[in-house]
Design a protein around this nucleic acid. Structure first.
Length: 419
RNA sequence: GGAGAGAUGGCUGAGCGGUUGAAAGCACCGGUCUUGAAAACCGGCAAAGGGGCAACUCUUUCCUGGGUUCGAAUCCCAGUCUCUCCGCCA
């Protein structure tokens, strides 16, 4: 969310910066509502002052007048609240401003490749898809999941379940022991204001699974990513500057409706309603966002290096970035059956955008209270890492070689073969 | 599910109709003292919003939302959350 005080100072620059997002915002209405809002506040405050003075004077002859002022204040206050909520409705739905480094573009086709790493495997046979491999091994069961739960779910069984668990542990260990993240096992349900804090609400309510605890209770949502719950650790907080940067990592299930993806990636486990993801979150001083983003992205690619999977790093263009992000790197892993790279991690700096929504602040050198910077990144999406391993490490007979780094996590198993 | 207790600033914690934005302590910052540090002493230290180039100033805020009152952190009502005891339970 943007700070109105800042926007007001240079409205034209604000408008221009958001043009890169190519979205429709009624700026003139925003400006007008802001003006009306402030005008009403002034009127109201003048009356409040008058009333306060009467009260202090304890002059009984003025008490009647004070009553009348109260009614007037009430009226103004209602009017002001209405204007403010209209203003908020616009403000809550305005995305973050792209960082100057971000290339301008419409969609994913305008993203720019930054670097490539790893060796793309060559096969002397036609590589199978991950779901063919998994089903042949009898370790991925989509039909069963359809029976118990519906579409976009999967049963992972046996050695692949072990592999999934190993991946989670390996990634966590790496981030905790080598990259300085603190391990968190968080709640998987988030309240409305938590979802608002990171930007999932109000605009993306359709993508969220809502949980009904009991009739009339507050709304709760299954987290679409641990980013939501980890970032909100600093919600409504004035953080001690000494505690920055804060770095958290968690491995959690994520739940998404995938409402806008009908017919997309319907085969296999690329796009599921539920999947595991290891998520990194950093809370930093606001001027450190860019450095932290590079650091975080390196933590993510480091995992792929260790797993010896080929990947490339892409910087997202202005039109393809998420709502809260100012700058995003996607890490894409090589998928042999599709003969292309697919997203396996997304690392974003959100500048102070989420902190404004969450009211997360700290005192800077000048003792001013300022908003913190927040970043999040997958390190990595476990389901998709599993896919990448299946496909990149497959043999002609349908068996899968286990990446060396994972073997200690799998009782030194070297290969998964058909029973 | 049943019975109680509570929610105040970064933290602990007083206040229980008007000079209380809020005592005191801790933490933090500055200073005196000291070779340096500690201790002691002195001073400073809430947030949000509005106005102003600025110095500054005004309004709001003691869980949330209503109510009583000229005036509410303080009284009344509703809700949320936390804690303790009993029951049930991974």
């Amino acid at each position: 969310m943007h700070n109105l005080k800042e926007i007001r100072k240079d409205f034209d620059t604000f408008k221009k910066a958001l043009k890169k997002r190519n979205i429709d915002i009624d700026f003139s209405k925003l400006e007008k509502l802001d003006y009306q809002n402030r005008e009403l506040i002034q009127k109201k405050e003048n009356l409040e002052k008058e009333k306060k003075d009467i009260s202090k004077s304890k002059d009984k002859s003025l008490f009647e007048k004070s009553k009348k002022i109260s009614i007037e204040i009430e009226k103004l206050s209602e009017e002001q609240k209405t204007i403010k909520s209209e203003l908020d409705k616009i403000l809550f739905n305005i995305p973050n401003i792209p960082h100057p480094d971000v290339p301008i573009g419409i969609d994913e086709n305008n993203n720019i490749e930054v670097s490539k790493a790893g060796k793309i495997p060559t096969f002397d046979f036609k590589p199978k898809t991950h779901y063919e491999l998994g089903e042949n091994l009898k370790m991925l069961d989509f039909d069963l999941a359809t029976k118990t739960s519906g579409s976009r779910f999967v049963f992972v069984k046996d050695k692949l379940a072990l592999l999934e668990r190993a991946l989670s542990n390996f990634m966590l260990d790496t981030h905790i022991l080598k990259n300085g993240y603190k391990e968190i096992s968080p709640p998987l349900l988030a309240s409305t204001d938590t979802m608002f804090g990171t930007g999932q609400l109000p605009k993306f309510e359709n993508d969220q699974f809502e949980i009904k605890l009991e009739e009339g209770s507050d709304r709760k949502f299954l987290i679409p990513t641990a980013e939501v719950i980890l970032t909100n650790i600093v919600k409504d907080k004035i953080i001690d500057k000494k505690d920055l940067p804060m770095r958290f990592v968690a491995s959690t299930p994520c739940f998404r409706k995938e409402a806008g993806s009908y017919g997309k990636d319907t085969k296999g486990m690329i796009r599921q309603h539920q999947f595991y993801k290891v998520e990194m979150v950093s809370i930093v001083e606001q001027n450190k966002c860019n450095d932290e983003l590079e650091r975080m992205t390196n933590c993510a690619t480091n995992i792929l290096d260790l797993l010896e999977l080929p990947y490339r790093k892409v910087i997202l263009c202005s039109g393809d970035m998420g709502f809260s992000a100012e700058k995003t790197y996607d890490i894409e892993v090589w998928i042999p059956s599709e003969n292309r790279y697919r997203e396996i991690s997304s690392c974003s700096s959100c500048s102070t955008f989420q902190a404004v929504r969450m009211k997360s602040r700290y005192k800077n050198e000048k003792k001013e209270t300022v908003f913190a910077g927040t970043l999040n990144g997958s390190g990595l999406a476990i389901g998709r890492t599993l896919i990448a391993i299946l496909e990149n490490y497959q043999n002609k007979d349908g068996s899968i070689v286990i990446p060396k780094i994972l073997r200690p996590y799998m009782n030194n198993l070297e290969k998964i073969a058909i029973n």
